[in-house]
Amino acid sequence: MVIYGVALLAGCMMAGLVIGDMLGEILNIDSNLGGVGIAMLLLIFITGVLKERGKMADSTSSGINFWNAMYIPIVVAMAASQNVAAAFSGGMVALVAGVLAVVLGLALVPILTGKRPETALDDAADDAIRLPRPPSRPARQYWTAAVTRHRPPTPHPPIASKEAAS
């Protein structure tokens, strides 16, 4: 059942958050330390075990995959509810400090990543990357297919362009 997947996801989240909260309390900081990351590891581990035993039904997966697919729309909603106005009205100190932090962080990414010599790592990366296809690719293929399908046989420019526009 789909709810099993959603419940598994939610259960991992709550367990991770509880652990993160306890870590924060142990270290005496007023924050959740890595709860989301711990939840991610829990989900990877538990679903891995379930798959190995053949107990991960497709409907269970779809309960998780739905939220996976909702990620980008949720991030867009998050972007739309950011306090962008405050960021711009913070004055030069805030602006320069924020920009500098991002520029330095981005510049350090290739330095800490180092070169990528191991082919095994590249293969692993490719495996991981090829599993779920990006949503834009099939859409584009469909789009170009629709255009090429419609253009040659039907010489109606308005219909063709309407097809392209949709």
Binding site: A39, M40, F66, V75
Partner: peptide, 15 residues
Amino acid sequence: LRDLAIIATAYGVNL
């Protein structure tokens, strides 16, 4: 919901 969706993206990740 953001954290829920972030955790869901971990499904199928390369451990």
